[in-house]
Simulated assay, not measured.
Amino acid sequence: MIETDSDAAQRSARFQQMALPHLDAAFNLARWLCGNPNDAEDIVQDAYMRAFRYFDMFHGDNARPWLLTIVRRTWYSEWQKREMSRHSVEFDENLDDAMFEGWSEPHADPETLMMRDQDARLVHEALEQLPAEYREVMVLRELEELSYREIATIADLPVGTVMSRLARGRRRLAAALASLQARAVGG
């Protein structure tokens, strides 16, 4: 069946309506998976191109889990290619700057804001130390606020595995935070 200009315009409009509201979530997941905002932009762009190409296969009302699954798979494909070529991705120090945009409060004192920024930096650093399988479920649950079932769909895991990875990830995150805080106080 040949797609007419009208059909293509309707398809494009539907894709924009369904997919574009989840662009921030897609970027957030990609950024946490790859650790670099520039790579994350590339991953999201590739994922959205794939999503548009296969949009006719999407049937449902909530495109978010479907799109995040594509982002995750796009990242894993890229990561596997890089591992095979032994090319490492350098951490982008400017990632922290984007994390704290919009934190200003009109009546907050500077010390409170500084402490909040420091706490967020420690959490960010601790989260980066987690293995990817724990980091991804933590980001999807705690930052993107997805349900266990949605995470299971995105990560192609049983719900029980999602729950156990979250529990282990939280324990590892707490241990990493304690270590970072001890180092910050002592050092």
Rank of each mutant, 00 (worst) to 15 (best):
Phe91Gly: 05
Asn36Ala: 01
Ile154Gly: 02
Arg53Met: 13
Pro158Asp: 08
Val137Phe: 00
Asp7Lys: 14
Ser77His: 14
Trp75Cys: 00
Ile154Asn: 00
Trp103Arg: 10
Arg121Ile: 05
Tyr134Leu: 06
Asp109Cys: 06
Arg171Gly: 08
Leu23Ala: 07
Asp92Ala: 06
Lys81Glu: 10
Gly169Phe: 03
Arg149Val: 08
Phe91Ser: 07
Val44Cys: 05
Val162Phe: 02
Met57Pro: 08
Ser77Asn: 14
His22Pro: 00
Asn36Lys: 05
Gln181Gly: 08
Gln10Cys: 06
Glu105Ser: 12
Gly160Ala: 09
Trp75Arg: 06
Asp7His: 14
Asp96Glu: 10
Cys34Thr: 07
Ala126Thr: 00
Gln45Arg: 13
Tyr54Phe: 14
Val137Tyr: 02
Gln181Ser: 09
Ala120His: 03
Leu68Ala: 04
His87Ile: 15
Pro21Trp: 02
Met1Tyr: 09
Asp109Pro: 03
Ser88Asp: 12
Met1Phe: 11
Ala47Pro: 04
Met114Tyr: 14
Met18Ala: 12
Glu150Ile: 09
Gly102Glu: 05
Leu33Met: 14
Met115Gly: 08
Pro65Gln: 00
Gly186His: 07
Arg64Thr: 10
Gln118Lys: 13
Ser12Val: 04
Gln10Glu: 07
Met57Gly: 12
Ile2Thr: 12
Asp5Ala: 13
Asp39Pro: 01
Cys34Gly: 03
Met114Asn: 15
Leu173Asn: 01
Glu3Thr: 12
Ser85Ile: 11
Trp32Thr: 03
Met1His: 11
Met114Ser: 10
Asn28Gly: 12
Gln45Ile: 06
Ser179Gly: 09
Glu93Leu: 13
Ala182Leu: 09
Gln16Trp: 12
Ser77Ile: 09
Trp66Arg: 01
Ala155Gln: 05
Arg170Tyr: 05
Leu95Trp: 07
Arg11Phe: 04
Asp42Pro: 06
Ile154Thr: 04
Leu143Trp: 11
His22Gly: 00
Lys81Ala: 15
Leu177His: 03
Pro106Arg: 15
Asn28Thr: 14
Met84Cys: 12
Met138Gln: 04
Gly186Met: 06
Arg172Met: 10
Asp119Met: 14
Leu127Gly: 06
Arg86Val: 11
Ile151Lys: 03
Ala132Cys: 08
Ala26Gln: 00
Glu90His: 13
Arg171Gln: 10
Ala132Thr: 13
Met1Lys: 12
Pro110Trp: 05
Met138Ala: 06
Asp42Ser: 07
Ser179Ile: 09
Leu68Ile: 04
Ala184Gly: 01
Thr4Met: 03
Ile43Gly: 02
Gln45Gly: 08
Pro21Asn: 00
Ser12Met: 08
Glu142Arg: 15
Phe27Met: 05
Gln129Leu: 14
Ala13Tyr: 07
Asp97Thr: 07
Gln17Met: 10
Gln45Cys: 05
Arg116Glu: 01
